[in-house]
């Protein structure tokens, strides 16, 4: 028993302590968080814009050019693997820049935007049409009705799937190793190829991802409950 315990401790030491290896994970974690965080913000901006573009209706009730553009964007992004999008961005589009972090943020932002667009659109459409009609019938403009009445109610519908999207995004950034970035996943992989002991680094990284997402889930759950409170006060 003691022998087993000692060997686990030794293997833990090799995976995390020896040669200050914990710094590799920490730096990797930094990249993971940086890319995810800024990509999430970019995705939120792009997605919201796309959602309203897609929902725009012309005076004659037809789809606007904006709506068609948004549709094409969403189609293309959802129809191709994000790894491929990252490679295309790094090796074809941004050949003039080797700032891989920035390219990763842009790629994941653009990718996430397509999914966020559908989330926002569904959330806005789920608000009863009568709410808009009541706003318009009082003389409020389309924009005012959106801003004061529809969007505050849509946020409640949007929050749960949006949380889901952020969680997916955080995990998906594990592919940035393809363009030479050392994120948490790659850091773990590097250590295991140095120690020839994959168990500790890989399980360790998994635990770190899991913990981050658990915390995120708890925070989102709290926010959601707070917003729902107005439903049955």
């Amino acid at each position: 028993m003691q022998e087993w315990f000692e060997s686990v401790a030794a293997s833990f030491e090799r995976a995390f302590i020896t040669g200050d290896r914990w710094k590799i994970y920490l730096a990797g974690l930094g990249i993971t968080v940086e890319v995810s965080f800024f990509a999430a913000i970019l995705g939120l901006l792009i997605g919201t814009l796309l959602a309203f573009m897609k929902m725009s209706v012309g005076k004659d009730g037809r789809r606007t050019p904006w709506s068609i553009i948004a549709n094409i964007y969403i189609d293309i992004i959802r129809g191709t693997p994000v790894v491929l999008q990252l490679l295309i961005m790094y090796f074809i589009v941004f050949t003039f820049s080797r700032n891989a972090v920035m390219i990763a943020i842009i790629t994941f932002g653009i990718n996430s935007g397509a999914y966020v667009a559908e989330i926002v659109r569904a959330g806005v459409l789920a608000v009863d049409k009568g709410q808009t009609e009541a706003g318009r019938s009082l003389g409020l403009s389309q924009a005012q009705t959106m801003l004061y009445i529809v969007i505050p109610q849509a946020v409640k519908n949007i929050l749960p799937p949006m949380g889901n999207e952020f969680i997916i995004l955080l995990k998906e950034t594990a592919i940035v190793g393809y363009v030479g970035l050392t994120d948490l996943t790659r850091a773990a992989n590097q250590v295991s190829s140095r120690t020839y002991e994959p168990f500790m680094p890989l399980i360790g990284a998994a635990i770190i991802y899991f913990s981050m997402i658990k915390v995120l889930t708890i925070l989102l759950g709290k926010l959601e409950r707070k917003l729902r409170a107005s439903d049955n006060r």
């Binding site: 009863d128 009568g130 709410q131 009541a134 003389g139 409020l140 009445i149």
Partner: peptide, 19 residues
Amino acid sequence: NHVRTRMGMVFQQFNLFNN
């Protein structure tokens, strides 16, 4: 919009702003 400010409407489903 200006016309509607002088023309009120009451709906079957009330449509009070829930928020």
